[in-house]
Design a protein around this nucleic acid. Structure first.
Lengths: 189, 189
DNA sequence: GCCTCCATGTAATTGGTTACATGATTCT
DNA sequence: AGAATCATGTAACCAATTACATGGAGGC
């Protein structure tokens, strides 16, 4: 079996923080915004997770204080050791591919619903993913492809667009199929 | 923003357990196998999580003891209340779509590597997903489409095949692109 | 003066993984 | 007799979410 093991435990959050700081010094507040804007669809994170992580990274010498600003603002920059740490992470041959997908998990159990309810579930999924597709296409237009990091982000977004296109089409095509499957199960009882 | 909130907190594990028991009475050991075979790519789970959950479900009257077998084997069956609980979950309009994807997260930071290393990363991703695609195609052939649950599983697998095909193609096409992006970044410094 | 956004943190809880632990049955 | 698989559980730990908590700066 290709997955079942190694779902996390690789501490991606800390490496993502280091990777973000590799571009330019930032505060915890700024980093939080990056997570919930540019990175929200691959790795969301809240400030409540970021601030403690920054403390740890500082203590371990992977980042250092860069400066202070108004309202207690503190910016951090990456140290040489921190850069080394991200590089090692990037070269590790074990990115986690296993992911939990609640919307797909539910599909397994649609036979417990009425056929019309199952159809409605799939229809909503299709609708949702079409909406996200539109959103991604819009964001894609607005990425300034200057720094390599932005070009890589655009590259990931291209996959995101493909993904949303694919899953919305699958959900659309599967909507009547699901209804029939569930109806077939009821009849035979 | 379409995600950022509601990543979990919907307690999918317990509902998945109930959904599995909806088909037929089973032991914790059997349920674990289902999670790590049929459901491993949408919701993996270990026995260490299942046994305590079964205790809770039993206490809450959502399942009940069905029988005992050799080696202390205990099978459970779904109660009416348990079936109701899964149905309510399936009809809730909020399946979590946000997911953490470490392999894609790393792509954002490939500019911190040498161009050849970045290329190698993407090449490996393509390779990995082509392998999973082959695996899924093989599994797809071997699903006996008798019970509606199996037909729904086949439907989900169809998406899985599409997904792996799409992402492996994307990774393949992006391999030279990533290398160029990273090389471009080095030059300009 | 008030509202919004900036900015930082802690604590409690939940969900999930890893490690620890044990024993019975079946197959070879 | 020994190995593999069946079978069940607990405890420690880590990652992530939710709730709690506070205050400064800037715009209207």
């Amino acid at each position: 079996m290709l997955s079942a093991d190694r779902l996390s435990g690789t501490m991606s959050l800390r490496h993502a923080v280091l990777g973000i700081l590799a571009r330019e010094p930032m505060s915890g507040y700024d980093i939080t915004k990056v997570f919930n804007q540019a990175m929200v669809d691959v790795w969301p994170a809240r400030h409540t997770q970021i601030y403690p992580e920054l403390s740890k990274l500082l203590q371990e010498g992977l980042i250092e204080l860069d400066g202070k600003g108004p309202r207690g603002r503190k910016t951090y920059r990456l140290t040489e050791a921190g850069l080394e740490e991200v590089r090692i992470w990037l070269l590790r041959p074990d990115p986690a591919h296993g992911q939990r997908h609640e919307a797909l998990l539910r599909v397994y159990f649609l036979w417990l619903l009425e056929p019309a309810e199952a159809r409605e579930y799939m229809r909503r999924e299709a609708e949702y993913h079409r909406a996200v597709l539109g959103l991604y296409e819009h964001i894609y237009e607005t990425i300034p492809p200057s720094h390599p990091a932005e070009k890589l982000r655009a590259m990931v977004l291209e996959w995101g667009i493909e993904y949303e296109r694919g899953i919305s089409e699958w959900a659309e095509q599967s909507t009547p199929v699901a209804e029939k499957i569930v109806a077939g199960g009821k009849k035979r009882r």
